[in-house]
Design a protein around this nucleic acid. Structure first.
Lengths: 250, 250
DNA sequence: CGGATACTTGAGGGTTGTCAAAATATGTGG
DNA sequence: CCACATATTTTGACAACCCTCAAGTATCCG
């Protein structure tokens, strides 16, 4: 699909992502292909934007992993989202200007910087691209709602299982998982704790339970969901909110 | 400002809200004023949209209060947002189509229904209106992030205080509070519990503490923040994420 | 190989939940 | 406008889930 026009691999990641969310015609795709992308390679634990920044460009994650987070007065941290290739973690500040959270890499990563001006000009010319980007932020909102529900009302085990099911789905959509439901995801248990509103110690105990029950295997940065229906059940997971269109994997 | 063109009171609510978020020129405002609004009066506890619905129109809250919520498998409820006049609780499904949560009134309410088709046509003609609506959903996202942080990492008392500070700010922005920081907000303690990820019993205890400390007074549907700096401190509240522009109150 | 980071496990404590019941407020019909 | 039914608030006793502190083990990486 998106291969039908001449695209750099970097532009291709963006085009594929937007195409999976909103139909784009050939002119839309050509316009996207002309976006200026400034490429950068980052190490792990590198800050992409800080809380309160006013960036003048968006950051497209091309390879590697990142997360959004807030740090409280007392030093506690809440991770708000995990980001995978194709995500634009700082897209909200295209219009909100001032960030209300920080974004950091979780692994060595390759990113592309896209000036706000170029993006705004493109949206003005190609409204469907604007709709696609708007939808990206709406899906972010749907994920926030799901996380809020989990942190507010689910048990630690349910939250953990739900996050693993969600992550597997998102990895699959990017062809980043193998058919045994295994994927590379370089998060520490402390980071999972900060995402789930738990402590690292309790995350460790919960993961131990899920492992003993044969739902998941993990080690290093490799995760494998051994019993997918069981995991989905444990997390009461329903992927609808991710709005993943299961288009042709060609 | 928005009074400079001829507007029904209902259109005025929408125009004022969008103007407070994004600059709109006279043509934008005229176009908004031409939107078809179907008015409806609803009782308290009336469902506006159900989880999984595919509405073909958006709902503008004109008077009264509402909330978004999800119900879990086991019957637990998580309230995701409280809505005030000027909000469009089901705006995300303008593009996401299928709702992932329900919306209900908390009090008798007056709402206007706006067909998606009319809204989409307007956005195509008046891109700045589209940007304003996009920003509305981005601010929703910022509030979700703040709530997620609270539920994940703040104590019960901090969460309660934060919610009261947030609500006061939003009421003020709509001129729905008096100068003694009092406002009408018809929520029960059970509803607060469902928003904060707590039980009604514990909300009651926490509210008792805040009352004894002289931070808040309440009774019936009336709330008064007696010590605003103290309340903001107790909730570590900083209003920046609400993106409220303190324009002229004329 | 050595230091640092991450994971694992145990013991004990605290914030919050559960269950229960009384007191108060609210609303509705007569 | 009262009387009753219902919903909401308040309080107490007790339990549970998760946190804190602590120590030991494994793993990563230069």
């Amino acid at each position: 699909m998106s291969a039908s026009i001449d695209l750099s691999p970097e532009h291709d990641i963006l085009v594929r992502r937007l195409m999976s969310i909103n139909g784009l015609d050939a002119a839309d795709r050509r316009a996207l292909a002309a976006l200026p992308l400034a490429l950068r390679d980052l190490p792990a634990d590198a800050e992409i934007v800080g809380d309160g920044d006013r960036p003048s460009a968006c950051t497209l994650l091309l390879e590697g992993f990142a997360c959004r987070y807030k740090v409280l007065e007392d030093g506690q941290r809440q991770i708000l989202a995990f980001h995978l290739p194709g995500d634009v973690p700082d897209l909200p500040c295209l219009h909100l200007h001032r960030t209300d959270h920080a974004v950091t890499t979780l692994s060595p990563a390759r990113v592309a910087t896209i000036p706000h001006a170029a993006l705004l000009e493109l949206i003005a010319r190609r409204p469907q691209v604007g709709v696609a980007l708007w939808k990206v932020t709406l899906i972010d909102g749907a994920i926030y709602r799901e996380w809020l529900t989990g942190v507010g009302r689910r048990t630690a085990k349910g939250r953990m299982a739900h996050l693993l099911s969600e992550t597997l789905c998102r990895m699959e959509a990017l062809a980043l998982s193998d058919d045994g439901h295994g994927f590379e995801w370089p998060v520490t248990q402390a980071e999972l704790a900060d995402a789930l509103g738990l402590t690292a110690v309790h995350v460790n105990r919960i993961l131990g339970e899920l492992r003993r029950e044969g739902l998941v295997a993990f080690g290093g940065r490799t995760w494998t969901v051994l019993d997918r229906p069981g995991m989905d059940r444990a997390g009461a997971f329903d992927a609808a909110y991710l709005h993943i269109s299961h288009a042709d994997p060609s």
